[in-house]
């Protein structure tokens, strides 16, 4: 038995394949290794936490959609059609749960790994790059988001809350939304030093959830307030999902997609920079 040998598939040979290529100093092309790690850790994690992420939007839907919805009756959507209140808020709840899941994963989980688990230091002592770590961690959050979105759809569809076939696209839509939030969230988390500061994140999230056209159309706001809300990511996410489930797809739908594409690219750049600044300085 020898502890050293030089085989073709040695760590060195693997690393040198990317030698001199663009981005070789921050990307090794091994996001899958981070996902595999997340899966190994997931096998022993608490199923209650996993379940809670799924149950939350369902409870909101039951309480507001069917409870409050019985008093309200219908709402007029963007195209002027009347839809049931439950069908109106269901896509908003889907968008919100995508946001919440992504933010939870990219703030609390990442914060813990950064400061207590020292997991990223360990990863970055290997031939992984910072973008591998960022993509892997975010990718795992997205897989979870995907599972939640599919679960929610399975409940929504038979209740008649997805009138349009476009609604199927609300699942990848939720993943896109989660991607955007997670990319930015991980970068922001890198600035936070303690648990008190972590609460600031909730301080922004809750009002955004309540006032971003989740439960009623923005038309009740004065123009200036409406414009501020429309610039916020959650409103963009809700409109995207609502367009899809209600089938009111148009150019504006594409604009929402573009909004998240920009958020993802910007967020990944920001997070990768921050990881380098923290762990490779």
């Amino acid at each position: 038995m020898s502890l050293i040998n030089a085989s073709i598939d040695s760590a060195i040979a693997i690393a040198e394949r990317r030698s001199g290529k663009f981005g070789a100093e921050f990307y090794a092309g091994r996001t899958n290794a981070i996902l595999e790690r997340a899966f190994l850790a997931f096998k022993t994690s608490s199923w209650m936490i996993v379940l809670s992420g799924f149950v939350e939007p369902v409870f909101y839907l039951l309480s507001f959609g069917f409870g409050l919805g019985a008093l309200i009756g219908g709402v007029t959507d963007g195209a002027g059609n009347s839809v049931s209140y439950a069908a109106y808020i269901a896509p908003a709840l889907l968008a919100t749960s995508a946001m919440n899941g992504a933010i939870y994963d990219s703030t609390w989980n990442v914060f813990f790994k950064m400061h207590f688990g020292k997991l990223y230091q360990t990863m970055l002592a290997t031939s992984l790059g910072t973008l591998d770590v960022a993509l892997g961690e975010i990718g795992w959050a997205l897989l979870r988001g995907l599972a939640y979105a599919m679960g929610f759809m399975v409940i929504m569809a038979p209740l008649g809350l997805i009138p349009s076939w476009w609604g199927i696209l609300a699942i990848p839509g939720a993943v896109l939304v989660a991607f955007g939030f997670a990319s930015i969230g991980m970068g922001i988390t890198s600035y936070l030093k303690n648990f008190q500061q972590m609460n600031w994140v909730n301080f922004f999230m809750l009002p955004m959830f309540l006032f971003s056209g989740t439960f009623y159309p923005l038309s009740i706001y004065p123009d200036w307030l409406r414009m501020i809300i429309e610039a916020l990511p959650l409103w963009q996410a809700i409109q995207l999902e609502r367009d899809l489930t209600l089938g009111t797809v148009g150019w504006s739908t594409l604009a929402h997609v573009a909004y998240f594409a920009v958020m993802i690219v910007g967020g990944l750049y920001f997070t990768t920079k921050r990881l380098s600044a923290l762990f490779l300085r």
């Binding site: 760590a11 990317r18 070789a24 790690r37 190994l40 688990g117 360990t122």
Partner: peptide
């Protein structure tokens, strides 16, 4: 400074404080 991942492939690193992945078993 420029070829970090490539150099790290040649190295085994034992840091001052043990930083294991506490969610995983020893062999994992």
């Amino acid at each position: 400074n420029k070829q970090g991942p490539e150099i790290r492939a040649h190295l085994g690193v034992v840091p001052q404080t043990d930083n294991h992945d506490n969610d995983l078993k020893a062999w994992e």
